[in-house]
Design a protein around this nucleic acid. Sequence first.
DNA 1: TTGTACGCGTTATCAG
DNA 2: CTGATAACGCGTACAA
Lengths: 400, 400
Amino acid sequence: MSGRVTMKDVAAALGVSTATVSRALKDDPAISLATRRAVLEMAQRVQYRPSAAARRLRTKSTSLIGVVVQSVGDGYVGEVVLGIQGRARDLGYQPLFFAAEERADLESEALDVFLSEQVTELIAVSPTGRPELLRRAVAEGMRVAVINADAEVPARFFREVTSGTISSQITRIGSPGRGEPMCHIRFDDVAAGELATTHLAGLGHRAFVHLRGPNVRSGLLRLLGYRRALTALGLWPQPVLTAAFPDMGSRESAVAAFLRQAGPPVAMVAYDDLAAVAALRAAHQAGWRVPEDLSVVGIDDIQFASYTNPGLTTVAQPKHELGALAVDALLTRRGAGPADGRAGPDGAVGPDGAVGPDGAVGPAGPAGPDGAEEVRVLDGQLIIRESTAPAMPVTREEAQ
Amino acid sequence: MSGRVTMKDVAAALGVSTATVSRALKDDPAISLATRRAVLEMAQRVQYRPSAAARRLRTKSTSLIGVVVQSVGDGYVGEVVLGIQGRARDLGYQPLFFAAEERADLESEALDVFLSEQVTELIAVSPTGRPELLRRAVAEGMRVAVINADAEVPARFFREVTSGTISSQITRIGSPGRGEPMCHIRFDDVAAGELATTHLAGLGHRAFVHLRGPNVRSGLLRLLGYRRALTALGLWPQPVLTAAFPDMGSRESAVAAFLRQAGPPVAMVAYDDLAAVAALRAAHQAGWRVPEDLSVVGIDDIQFASYTNPGLTTVAQPKHELGALAVDALLTRRGAGPADGRAGPDGAVGPDGAVGPDGAVGPAGPAGPDGAEEVRVLDGQLIIRESTAPAMPVTREEAQ
DNA sequence: TTGTACGCGTTATCAG
DNA sequence: CTGATAACGCGTACAA
């Protein structure tokens, strides 16, 4: 006939029933080896392709996993998505991507699509702000995993961490939602801030500065890591720079202003690679050499970090793994999680501030009464390029 | 009951038949206004969601459009994908993304998935090399559109364009496949090369250099544009730099070697933004100032082009539009294509070389006898940032 | 204007 | 080990 080739065709060609074909194709043990081979061969010959629609209608189990990203315009999300697709593929699932560019209408539409497609597992990549989508998704009965949720945080908390005592409220930051039953997969921002800072300290630096991020969770946590590392070293307090985000110019002038009243060498921990690049530009224009006068380390390891001038030392996010782990969290039931990245609190309780951003109340363990709530935290990795160097004593001419 | 809410539920709740519900939901004219409203309201109340699987099974028309990308790891593809999703959405289609990372097995699997999902329209974003997937897709009866296909091209052609007469074979480059019935949507590489070059010439530059790309179609075409613009200005020949790709270091040393035997000011047209960044690094290390000593313009306008140091002047690809137009080409039948970007030859016949890379034989028009083959070409846009400046006479101290 | 009945391609149940 | 047969949720001829 004209249409696609179906099971009936295969069955007819072999003189068997469609039931037999169906069984042979799914390796049902109750089938003779001979017929199975015959079916397989014939299916191959006539180019048979099972109809996903029919199968789903019958079994009610779509092997579909919904993925919402805010935007796939930058490389970061793309890398995570690759991790998701890879792992989903291994588990026989098909990701269904939807880019909701922070628009409420698109998010709503995404949910509609997922519902129509009978998607039961949902991954949100780096959602910022609006929790409606996720709430509605769990309300509809979906299992959801969130990668690097980055909600807004009061500016007051930043002030406290920058120059004050850390209130207990900050302890709640990074808490896995308000008891929403969803998995959280996240990069360890606190540890990243610490790692960047200790790397610089290990190079002999004693004069630090942090170019902080926007008023969101990751911004606060990275700042916290900066402070914690410095406190452990007995070097706290150190300056923290604030700029309007995501305006590149604002960041540059903030750095420029700082450099004007400082002397080399200075060690900078930037909120992320983009902030680090702004610092690179400001330094260049101010006549500071990188890394000789200014060492700077970024966080994230975006693709471009290796192309900056000079190449950027940074703490890399395990982007693929973040994606893969989200899939695991959704698909593999509690118990045998492929061991990678420790499971536990986002930032362990440290000497300064006693902050365990993971659990608000309990003694910080993988939480959730019935296993609905879960947090997996992945460490970053220090990538050393050319933007950091040992702190050298200031030469006479540099000091003028 | 336990399962999802279906049309039967809505019908039962209203005491009507499922047929009525079905009709009311699709605005069938043969339905009373009263019942329609009642159905709509009830559907709303009970949170009814149509089953995509059932609908597809019944109508055999999935509103699915397959999208293969090689990798979504860099921002470029992400932008195009956004354009695809946006336009597909407008037309009531749902994109189904698949990242085949240049791996034959993944490409094959992608096709299987599309076939199982009964996808009949396929978009390939920036495929490089292997045409098997596309061939098989059309063999399976899919309509396919290709965005910026970038096949390999003999190195000999580059030599001809760089320093020789342009053979007629080059005329065929950029021909829309070997008569494969598929639409091609592409960025005008020749025009981009010309635009970058004329911008520089307009700034007063007379000493040029091109850092060429890999041995692929776009690399050849951009080089061609460079030559054409220069020829029109009476400035040809000018040097062309070759480097191993995609090795950043190789590019840098190629540029460094060139700078060593040249004097400022020099105007460079780089194959793409990444190549331009390599040039920036090489210039920096060689002590050349940008843009004072070396003006450089890239092509593509990747996200990072505005973050380089200094900001990169470049010819932007209309990434969103490329995606949107691919959807249009597939979904809207011949006739009323939303006018954007001229339709026509990739590079018009010019004074030098007489190359119209679009059509191999005919007088260069939107080709295809039965409308199967079609080419849409989109122009780039010059984005002026800080990496280009007027050519200033060499000062005495610079000339040593 | 609405209801009835059938079939899209699979899989699962029940006989044989 | 294999074959009928029913049902998944929906759309649409056909009849009323």
